[in-house]
Amino acid sequence: NTKMVRFKKGDSVGLRLAGGNDVGIFVAGIQEGTSAEQEGLQEGDQILKVNTQDFRGLVREDAVLYLLEIPKGEMVTILAQSRADVYRDILACGR
């Protein structure tokens, strides 16, 4: 149940992230009207890879910085997997 989305970065990627470290990086929110939303990313999706950067094992701050450093107008390719069950557990633990 993995999906790959590809879009051109606007002012931002339009994602709020949660998790990090051993639990993985998850989409915690999506800005309305962004390409990330239009391409089908959803809250609870685990981000496995962005462009050439493996997101598994990253701390959340490093994942956020990586997304911020992608220049506006560059193509962004995100490999994600729907993991809403794991995401709910992360929220319940306050991570």
Rank of each mutant, 00 (worst) to 15 (best):
G14D: 09
K8A: 08
P71W: 03
A63Y: 00
D85H: 13
L17I: 08
M4Y: 11
Q46P: 03
F26M: 04
N1V: 10
R16V: 12
K8P: 07
L58V: 08
D89W: 00
V50L: 04
A63G: 04
R6Y: 06
G20H: 05
V5A: 03
V86M: 11
L17Q: 06
E69D: 12
G44Q: 01
I30T: 09
G14S: 07
E43M: 07
E74H: 09
R95G: 13
I30V: 14
V64D: 14
R95S: 12
Y66P: 08
D54M: 04
F55M: 04
K72D: 04
L41H: 04
E32G: 12
V76I: 12
G40Y: 00
E39T: 15
E39D: 09
D11K: 07
G33A: 05
D89T: 11
L65I: 09
Q42P: 04
R6T: 11
R95M: 15
K9Q: 04
G33L: 03
V86R: 12
D54H: 07
K72N: 08
D89F: 02
G57Q: 11
A63L: 01
D22A: 08
L91E: 12
N1K: 10
S12Q: 10
G44M: 07
E37A: 14
N21M: 14
T34I: 09
M4A: 08
G14W: 01
E39C: 15
I47R: 04
A28K: 07
C93M: 14
T77S: 09
L17A: 02
D11Q: 09
G29C: 03
N21F: 10
L48A: 00
C93R: 13
D45R: 01
V27T: 06
E61K: 08
G20E: 06
L15F: 15
G24Q: 05
V86N: 11
A80N: 02
T34N: 10
E43I: 14
D54F: 06
D62P: 04
E39W: 13
M75S: 08
I90P: 12
N1Q: 00
Q81W: 00
E74A: 12
S35M: 13
I90S: 13
R83W: 02
A84I: 14
R16P: 04
V50I: 08
L41R: 02
R16W: 08
V86E: 13
R56G: 08
G19W: 02
A18G: 07
I30K: 02
E74C: 07
Q38H: 14
I70W: 06
M4V: 15
R95L: 15
T2G: 01
T2A: 01
L68V: 11
I30C: 05
G24H: 10
V13S: 08
L79P: 04
M75Y: 10
G44N: 02
G33I: 09
Y87V: 06
R95W: 10
D89C: 07
Q31T: 13
K49Q: 13
I70D: 00
L15C: 04
K72A: 08
T2W: 07
T52C: 11
T77Y: 00
F7D: 07
L58F: 07
Q31L: 10
I25D: 05
Q42D: 07
K8L: 13
E74T: 12
E39P: 02
Y87K: 11
G57S: 10
R16K: 13
A36H: 09
Q81V: 13
G94K: 11
C93N: 15
L15Q: 00
E32D: 11
I25M: 02
V86Y: 12
F7H: 00
G73N: 06
L17Y: 01
G33W: 01
A28S: 10
G19Q: 08
D45Q: 04
T34P: 04
Q81A: 11
L41C: 03
E69K: 12
V86L: 10
Y87I: 09
V76S: 01
D62R: 12
G29N: 06
A92S: 13
V23G: 14
Q53W: 03
A84F: 14
A18P: 05
G29M: 01
G24A: 05
T52P: 02
Q42K: 13
R88M: 10
G57E: 09
V64L: 14
G24I: 07
V50A: 03
K49W: 12
I30H: 01
F26L: 05
S35I: 14
P71D: 06
I78S: 01
G94Q: 14
E43P: 10
D54A: 05
D11V: 01
I70M: 00
A92Q: 12
A84G: 13
L67Q: 05
V86G: 08
V50K: 03
I90T: 11
